[in-house]
């Protein structure tokens, strides 16, 4: 980039002594290629699934009931099941996750206790989903007698998404300028009043983004759900009924070779759902950064 004709002019820096053009070129080409490849893979995956699945995406497929184990008919119960399961898990995890984040940022200073909480959250984040599935099966399905049900699945998923929500909420709470808190306290507001009326509202866009992203992951989760929510093809009547979520349905269709065509259709629905969720998250985040740049002088 910088023009440097003579080699070895800079003593002590062996890098400058090497013939510099070649390794730089090759390296940069590789780096560019890997960025290109990464994006290409993404585009390929999304394009492949959408193109193959598009043919199947008819109202009858989306709003119809499955027949012959899903070989024919639609995926309506799975769409409903996925929606209810995901919403319920967010409804459980969001208050807990945001509450934990508020506790960590507003109610406690760095100490043994907060370190324990943080350790718990970080460790949870590293646990593979199949282990969550095993746990949910043992604890919710069997021990608490909830059976394979939306409730068991949601509780398991909630445990899984907790760390994400805690981390993103904590980040956005910490980015609220401390002077807001000082101002509220100086006006005689209590801690709870300060948190609810000044801190949380300023952090809302970031928190919402985190929750939406966690939701996006939950929509596509399979391993943790298959052992806790079951794989019933019927339309659930309540949260105590089992469901077969979209990814589970897709997995069964594809793996057992029931119907490749319907598998593609289900995958397309799944991808569209995930993309919509991601888009919503980035949209929210984008609006925050815009607002921040106005306020943050």
């Amino acid at each position: 980039m910088t023009p440097s004709s003579g080699s070895g002019r800079v003593s002590g820096l062996d890098v400058a002594r090497r013939p510099e053009r070649k390794p730089g070129r090759l390296g940069m080409a590789l780096v560019r290629a890997s960025a290109f490849l990464t994006v290409a893979v993404l585009v390929f995956i999304i394009g492949y699934v959408l193109v193959r699945g598009a043919r199947v995406l008819t109202p009858r497929f989306l709003l119809g009931f499955p027949e012959k184990m899903g070989r024919e008919g639609g995926i309506y119960p799975s769409i409903v099941g996925t929606f209810v399961l995901t919403s319920l898990s967010v409804a459980i995890a969001a208050p807990l996750g945001i509450g934990t984040a508020v506790f960590l940022t507003e109610y406690t200073s760095e100490g043994l206790f907060s370190r324990i909480v943080r350790f718990g959250t970080e460790s949870l984040a590293g646990i593979p989903s199949i282990i969550f599935g095993l746990f949910g099966f043992l604890f919710f399905v069997i021990r608490l007698g909830m059976g394979w049900s939306i409730l068991s699945g949601s509780l398991t998923l909630a445990a899984m998404m907790l760390p994400t929500i805690v981390r993103t909420s904590e980040e956005s709470l910490r980015s609220v300028p401390d002077i807001y808190r000082e101002t509220a306290y100086a006006l005689g507001a209590s801690r709870w009043q300060t948190v609810t009326s000044v801190v949380l509202p300023s952090a809302v866009p970031g928190i919402v983004t985190g929750v939406i992203l966690a939701m996006g992951r939950a929509v596509g989760e399979t391993a943790a759900v298959i052992f806790t929510a079951g794989s019933s093809l019927r339309l659930p009547g309540s949260i105590f009924d089992p469901v077969r979520t979209l990814p589970v349905h897709f997995y069964i269709l594809a793996r057992e070779g029931i119907s490749l065509e319907n598998a593609y259709g289900t995958a397309a629905v799944l991808i569209i759902a995930v993309l919509l969720v991601d888009f919503a998250a980035y949209y929210t985040l984008h609006r925050v950064s815009k607002r921040r740049s106005v306020t943050g002088r």
Binding site: I179, Y180, E182, T183, A184, A186, V198, P201, S202, T295, R297
Partner: peptide
């Protein structure tokens, strides 16, 4: 305070 703080 030193800098004006409009609450959001």
């Amino acid at each position: 305070f030193a800098l004006p703080v409009p609450l959001p």
